[in-house]
Design a protein around this nucleic acid. Structure first.
Lengths: 123, 123
DNA sequence: GCTTGAGCTGGAGTACACTCCAGCTCGTAA
DNA sequence: TTACGAGCTGGAGTGTACTCCAGCTCAAGC
């Protein structure tokens, strides 16, 4: 799989893919005869997972640590589980915050609608 | 209200409060006889609201725009409502993403527990 | 009246996460 | 066989959001 194909499938830019490799988020893929990266198919799923960790606010350093543990194999299951459990708690907190703010947005929007109505009727 | 008091009540640093004033997120407060900032009490609520917008991912530039509209008064009700409605949609998307990732974390944690068990029993 | 500590200004520095660029090589198509 | 496009490397540059610092002023306690 060429780097451009991976970029298309993941939504990351080619530069970002090389950057992720440099910082250790993606394993350096084998190269073809011309020295170009030839990614395994499963990199798509891995990048998708990284994207979910990213979208839910896991810092780069932690994602790099997780990727490192993954490279180290079965001996790191426990630490990986602990990382995911910790992140799960972070997500739960954020969810709560989001729900509260969503409710606040609803109240504020209703308030502004009322204020706009009052403006229109020159109260 | 002194800047240190505002910092304590909001969790922002004194530097951040001055920075927020510089970029237009907080109105420049009146000064006391010695030239020090003397914040009105309601700045606490405003900063809390900014914190909620921040925590739910509204970019700085948008928060600055909202603060600017707020300063402009009643004529900006509609634009403010539209901003909040747009942000509400962003929050809904993020909520969905968070819930999906939370479910994924649950599945992954369960998977790792199973793998750890298999490791322990030398399968 | 002198020291101390809080606050002041303008500007430089930092951390994170990319993003872009120059100058190069390689494989394919006309 | 030459032109072109895709990909390569190392390193510089960017945007966001703060964070820190030097050197100053001011009010209050001893």
């Amino acid at each position: 799989m060429k780097i451009s194909t991976v970029a298309e499938h993941t939504g990351l830019s080619i530069d970002t893919l090389r950057f992720y490799e440099k910082i250790g988020l993606i394993d350096p893929p084998p190269r073809d005869a011309g020295g170009r990266r030839d990614y395994p198919d499963d990199v798509i799923g891995w990048i998708g997972f990284l994207g979910q960790l990213n979208a839910t606010g896991m810092p780069q350093a932690d994602r790099i640590r997780y990727a490192e543990l993954r490279r180290l194999g079965a001996s790191t299951y426990t630490e990986r589980r602990e990382m995911l459990q910790a992140h799960r708690e972070v997500i739960r907190q954020k969810l709560k915050q989001m729900q509260e703010t969503l409710a606040l947005m609803d109240r504020k929007v209703a308030l502004y609608e009322q204020l706009e109505e009052e403006e229109r009727s020159h109260v």
